[in-house]
Amino acid sequence: MSIITFTLNGSQVSVDAPPMTRLLDLLREHLHLTGTKEGCGEGECGSCSVLVDGELVNSCLVPSLQIQGATVTTIEGLGEQTHLHPIQQCFLEKGGAQCGICTPGMILATHHLLEKHPAPTLDEIREGLSGNLCRCTGYMRIFEAVQQTAKLAEAGK
């Protein structure tokens, strides 16, 4: 066991866990944050996506020792019941979530994409989300949700 200390959704946490524990399990099992999902466990589906120091990573591939001192954002860190994050609001309105299992990862991937490209082209969206598989939507409503978020941000400037 070893103590892993990092910033999670804005607060500092310390967890006692074997250093090779997958970040995914650290979040879900040790910290009971179950918004991050496991779809494949091999880095293919992106449903376990979280942000580590602003980068989008598949938490099923990251051993916990690598996040010592890092800043981690999960879906739980994005919005509140009474105040959805604009990405969440747009996913809800545009039909970007169907079964919802890919949604937390997809929303974090969108967050990451919009940081890099605040006004993404359709091709940038298609590329930017291509590491996150969705079996339900065929992605079209998700693209609309991303475009809508970008539009709102632009209008709000």
């Binding site: 879900r28 179950t34 949604t103």
Partner: peptide
């Protein structure tokens, strides 16, 4: 009309509980 998905809010917030949760 495009009524919002009934359980949509829980899903976009990551609060919907699936079996493994």
């Amino acid at each position: 009309a495009p009524a919002l998905r009934y359980e949509g809010e829980a899903k976009v917030l990551g609060r919907a509980k699936y079996i493994d949760d």
